[in-house]
Each structure stands twice: as C-alpha cells, then as structure tokens.
Write a protein that binds this DNA or RNA. Structure first.
Lengths: 346, 346
DNA sequence: TTGTACGCGTTATCAT
DNA sequence: ATGATAACGCGTACAA
C-alpha cells in the first residue's frame, strides 16, 4: 500500500484533481453523482489528504494553537477541556502542541504558526525571559494564560495579552491567613528560578506579608526545591519537607507554592510521626482537584480556571477580530480553607 | 512583518536558495563566510522554515509519533519522559500528538503519518474496536502501550504490537489478595465500556477470582462509574462510592479499577464518617505516584511503566529496522501493599 | 562551492 | 459543473 495522492484518486474516479479537491473540502458546486463516485474511491483506497501540502496552499484555516509547556503538569488538564470547547463553539479547530523541558516555546510557537495556518495562539506555561524577544516575530495574537502569564512584564506591554491571578498578591493573602492563625515561624517551599517565575512571585508575596507586619523574614525558613527533578512535583515536596524537618528549625506552618508540593509535604510530615495540622499546618496554592480529596483536605488558593480559560479564549478572539488591543486580565484567587491548617498552639 | 521565505533570505544575503537551504540543514559544503552571512540574515529577519513545505519534500525525517488519547489522564505523564529520552537516544525526533475524546485516534494517526514523515508510531491509550480497521492503512509500524493495548485481540495479530500488563490476571491477583485478608463482600468500581476495555478486563479478573474460589459473583456489588463525566477521575470515584454507601450493601472492601477512583473512594468513605481500612478496605490499580503519598497509602497493582515505556520504544525500533515482526509483550504487575487494606474483621 | 530548475501534493484561478 | 494549470515554500539533482 504505497502512498496514494489526490492525483490517483482523480485518475481512478475518472475526474480532474480540482473536482476531487472540491469534494474533499465540501464545496457545493459539484454534482451529487460525481461526488458519490469520488467519495467511493476515496473510501476504498483509504486516501488521506496530505496536511503539509494543504497547509502550504490554504489561506483560511480557522485554527487556534494551544502550546503547553510541560505536559507533565496536571495543573493544565482541566483548562484544556474548556478551551477546547470554547474554541469549538466558535467553529475553529484546535491544534494542541507540547513543548518539552528543553525546547524553547517561542521556537515551537513560530514553527506552529506557519506550519498550521494559525489565527491565534494560547500559551499554557512557558514564557521565559529569553524567549520573550523571539515572540515579537509572531504575526498572530498571543495570550498567555495562568503560569506563563506571570513571567511577562505587565506594564503597558502591547506585544501579547495575559490572563491570570495575581500570584504575588494571593501568596500574600494565604501567608496572612497563616499569620492570623497565630503562626510566626512559617517555612516556605518554592522554586529558585527567574525573577518573574511563579515560584519567585509567590515568594515575594510571602515576604510582603511579613513586610506589612513589619516583621523580618527569616531567610533560613525559605526552602528551595531540588533542582535535579521536576520542580513542582509531589516527590519534590516530600523531599524538601524532609530537609525542613531534618533542619531542626522550629516551625509551625509550611506554605508550599503549589498544591502538589503540599501533598508531598503532608506525607513527609506524617511519615515523621507528626500530625497535620496539629503539629504543622500546611497550605498550598493552585486549587487542584487532588487537594479537595486529600486527607486532610488542603488549605489553598484556588485559581478560577474556568473563568480564566473562558476569558483567555474570549480575549484571543477579540484580538483576532481586532475588537481589542492587548490586555492583561487579572482574576482574584479564592482562599479555600481545608483541614490542613489550624490555629498555632504555641 | 509579512511572511518571509527562503527566497527572501537568499535575495537579501545575495546567494541562491540552495545555499540557504544547505545552511539551514547544516550541510558541510558551504564556505564559512557564506554560512555566516546567511545565518546573520536569518537572525535579523527572524526567518523560520516552513515545516509543511519541508515535510512535503523531505524523505528522511527520523521521526517517531506518540499519540495520546486524552491528555487529561495523568497516568501517561511519567511514560512520556522516558519515551522521549529513549527516542532521543536513538537520534530520532518525537512528535507528540493528543487526540480529544471525540476524535478517532486512527484518523489522527493517519493524518500524523503523512503530515510528518513518521517512521513509527506509539499509541498511549485509545485503540477502540472501530478504529482497528482503519489502522490497517497505516504504512508504518505501530505499538500500543499500556491501556490501549488491552483493547486489541492479542491472538496472532500481526497488524500491530502491544506492550502492557495482563489487566485481567492482575485484577484477579489483587482481588485474591482481598479475599485472603478474609473479605467476602467486595464491591468493584469499574467502567461500562467495550468488551476489551480496561474496565471490562479488570472486571473479568475480579470475577475470575470468585470463579476460582467457586463462589458466585454478586452482581449487585458491581458498580459502574457515572457516564456524564470523566470515567476514571477522582470525582467519579467519590460519587460512585457515595452510591455504594447509600445502597446500604454490607461490604467490607472496594476494588477500584484505577488509582484515581480509589483516591475519590477513600475520601467518600472518610466523609461518611467511616475509616479506611478499619471499616472498609480500598485498593486501586495502576500504581500512580499519588497513591504512594495519599493518606492512607494506597494498596494497588503497580504497572512497571519504566520497563513498559522502554520496551515499547525498543520494540518499535526493532520493527522499524525489521529486526522483529509484531509481538505482544506482557509485563507482570506488582502488588503494592499500602495502608488502605487490612484483615476483614467480621 | 554555488546557483538553476524541477517536483512534492494540494488549493485557487481561470477557462471551458 | 468540471478540468487544466499556476502557485505555495522548500530540498535536491544537476549544471556551472
């Protein structure tokens, strides 16, 4: 079964290639009889149009690209479904692409743009400082959603749009919540990355809470995840918490900058023979499903992923149809009080 | 900034298109001076080769496709990394594609095959009965890994290869483990799907355990997940378990056919004021990371995803290089005894 | 070492 | 309604 092309189909059906093309693309100006004949040939030959060749010629592919940085992150999963259906509702097709840890998402985006005939692109994660410049070469509107959005400067930037929560502010809120429970020695588990990474932004929020209370931040209570494995994974939360416990620091609460870290932290605390929250309170950030089913339930900041996803798509279409210029939309997070935090007893 | 092509680059650099092409593809037969000049132009123009046009011409793209059915399933996440690095080790590129719930994975595979110049393809999930036939049109070797593999008949099928555990056998093992703990009234939460779906296969294993003990299966203890949401989700495990508890059936153990279902089940039991495992033992299937960090730790069947992933790639390359014909490789699962199961006290 | 010209499979344009 | 043919952007013989 060697490769069969539109020419073959045309020859076998006894018609011209243009006619076959018309049938494939559902044009109306073709007789029912001819259409059926061609369709029959297509069916029995198992002919599949070559997408590369189509994209080379086509001008009007109503297509939106979604670029995910790190497929490993289950955080994005719930967003995809919503984005997919929203795009579908506009009668556009969705091209989902994944960028590995080593790939530069800007390169992948550029490639995607002219490989498919994209009208717009959504970034989930990614958005490193360095790729920022390359993004200028994008000819289509881009929207960064959630994590990736934080990494960009928001101040009057007209190159792309962002939709997210205010990581720094929300991190301050949950830290303040811990403080209001009476906690003073609050450790934080975060990521040592760029100045505008989520990890850093949430750390800033943590520091803000102390600044507002006019209390010094104890740098020894700032713990960074291990570098040699997935940064925001359960396992990393477990390992890092073990380091915290082994350090002998007298802490009563841990703020993990993601829920997955918090899940690992809670297990590490339990394995050390301590209780959550009686001995140590734990809170996360993100509002992932798992936190609502963990034991104990996780106290966290919930990101309104539904709204964020919907707004992301809406904004993108506004941009595509020039109804709007680039904007930076910020949604409020919601403090979810679970069972993993309680009043400080000491 | 309109679209810039290889012709533009050639014109600006004052060379021919073939020279530019040579530079792009890293051919050696081009003077260092010319190369630099071209590279400079490429850089300042932000030129990106059109992949569609390249694939149209290229014949030797060393590319492997990985098709994931349902990106929502975190079960596959750990496999991707391994598969990616294994493929990389062979100096092949990886093209990752996702098929939505509505898409036929066979269509996507066919499209992927001639869009990129794939040498082989790996299916993660998917593999429905109906798409089986379309797969015949694939001109490149295909390997189904884990979940999707089960759906195919293994008996002397020479159309594709499979790598997986024996779902039916392993399900029997863990059911027997529960029986050996003294449990008699064992509920099962599974999926009502096709004859060879994982849900059905694992249900068969459950029934086998009873058959071997010459005990009748109580059909009233077979519970099916809700159809109107993700089948193997935490939430579905929660809801279905609520139904089990509300049914008033006198059960002492629940076998959930996936770990995610089990996580939801444990939470539902706790919310009902009961304890795991003292009141009800719970076990899962898959061996996902979350089960090792849940509270209590989950008893489950662990699939050797490392080995499965590695073997999947190895087998695919054997097929590509005609060192092997299609095979069906089965790995043993491992019973992981957690804290979510204990002796039946009644 | 470098440039010219053709073909990859498809769609769009222009005839008919 | 249908067919012939010129692009689309690139790789690669082949010629120079």
């Amino acid at each position: 079964m060697s490769k069969i092309t539109i020419v073959d189909v045309a020859r076998i059906s006894g018609v011209g290639v243009s006619t076959v093309s018309r049938v494939i693309n559902g044009h109306v100006d073709v007789s029912a009889k001819t259409r059926e004949k061609v369709l029959a040939v297509i069916n029995e030959t198992g002919y599949v149009p070559n997408d590369s060749a189509r994209n080379l010629k086509r001008t009007d592919a109503k297509c939106i690209g979604v670029l995910i940085k790190g497929i490993t992150n289950p955080f994005f999963s719930p967003m995809i479904d919503i984005i997919e259906s929203e795009i579908d509702r506009q009668n556009y097709a969705l091209v989902l692409r994944h960028a590995g840890p080593e790939e530069d998402e800007a390169d992948v985006a550029l490639e995607l743009e002219n490989e498919k005939r994209l009208r717009g692109i959504i970034f989930l994660g990614g958005g490193s400082e360095q790729s920022k410049e390359k993004l200028r070469d994008l000819k289509i509107p881009a929207v960064f959603s959630t994590i990736g959005a934080t990494i960009l400067d928001r101040d009057g930037n007209a190159e792309y749009s962002t939709v997210s929560v205010d990581d720094r502010l929300e991190a301050r809120h949950i830290t303040q919540y811990l403080m209001n429970l009476g906690h003073k020695n609050i450790a934080i588990i975060t990521e040592a990355m760029g100045r505008r990474s989520v990890g850093h932004l949430r750390l800033e929020g943590y520091k803000d809470a102390f600044a507002i209370k006019r209390q010094p931040v104890n740098d020894e209570l700032v713990f960074y995840v291990e570098q040699n494995m997935e940064h925001f994974s359960i396992e990393n939360g477990y390992r890092t918490t073990q380091r915290i416990l082994a350090s002998g620091k007298d802490i009563t609460a841990i703020f993990c900058v993601t829920d997955l870290l918090a899940i690992g932290a809670m297990r590490a605390i339990a394995d050390a023979g301590l209780r959550v929250p009686e001995d140590i309170s734990v809170c996360g950030f993100d509002g992932m499903e798992i936190g609502r089913y963990s034991n104990p339930r996780l106290t966290t900041i919930s990101q309104p992923l539904d709204q964020i996803s919907r707004e992301t798509v809406k904004l993108l279409f506004d941009l595509i149809e020039s109804r709007s210029s680039h904007r930076h939309i910020v949604f409020p997070g919601e403090l979810i009080i679970g069972e993993s935090t309680m009043k400080c007893l000491t």
